[in-house]
Design a binder for these strands. Structure first.
Length: 207
DNA sequence: AGCCAGGGTCTAA
DNA sequence: TTAGACCATGGC
């Protein structure tokens, strides 16, 4: 079985240096909510409809109906609008002094927001706040499963990565992005080829 | 037509 | 503490 770092280097050599989500923290927060159980293309659609993700202050001034209409293509628009509003208020309040808070404290605050679960909290911590908190999503679980790992909980998966890697937000962000690149290319729910069944990371098959 | 997409909450047992 | 229902839309 490969180590967490060996998986990373394989992905890196296969897909090259990954991109960062966005340099604007609030954009990451909003898009992280919009993409919940939704195809990324729908998030792009909504982002364009808004002419870019608005500032938190702007979101807070919008009527529900307006916000609903803008994010409708992403689905679950009532719940997501509420979550985005909560995030806007939260970020508007602590922006600037968040560096004095520990990663765990920030994570706890994020999880206290309705509509923000573990994955979304970790995405925000890594890509918006540059804190190392490993992101575990369906693709991560699927890739590990294909590689032959049998974890019984996300806690175990988190330990596998966080104990096998430097606690570095840049590394965690790159890792998550690479897993995404890989799974979009080859790791669908059903193994798509013999290479996948053989538990090999195969970036070159099954487009 | 039905399934999937970078989830999360709530409820029941 | 875990499983299942539910939330909503767009693409294929």
């Amino acid at each position: 079985m490969p180590t967490a770092y060996e998986i990373y280097t394989q992905l890196l050599s296969a897909y090259g240096t990954p991109e960062w989500w966005s340099d604007d923290p609030f954009t990451v927060m909003v898009q992280a909510v919009l993409v919940q159980n939704t195809a990324w293309e729908n998030v792009v659609m909504a982002t364009k409809a808004m002419g870019g993700i608005p500032r938190p202050e702007t979101i807070l001034l919008m009527a529900d109906e307006e916000l609903h209409a803008l994010i409708r293509p992403c689905g679950f628009f009532r719940a997501k609008a509420r979550t985005i509003r909560s995030l806007a208020a939260w970020w508007d309040g602590i922006r600037g002094d968040e560096s004095s808070l520990s990663t765990e404290a920030l994570r706890k605050q994020l999880l206290a927001i309705k509509g923000v679960g573990e994955e979304t909290a970790d995405v925000i911590l890594v890509y918006a706040l540059y804190r190392p908190s490993f992101i575990i999503d369906a693709y991560t679980r699927r890739l590990l499963s294909r590689l032959g790992f049998q974890f019984s909980s996300d806690t175990e998966i988190r330990s596998f990565f966080e104990e096998g890697l430097e606690a570095d937000a840049g590394l965690y962000g790159s890792y998550h992005w690479l897993v995404l690149e890989h799974c979009k290319a080859v790791c669908r729910k059903t193994p798509c080829c013999d290479e996948c069944r053989l538990r090999t990371i195969c970036p070159f098959c099954c487009q």
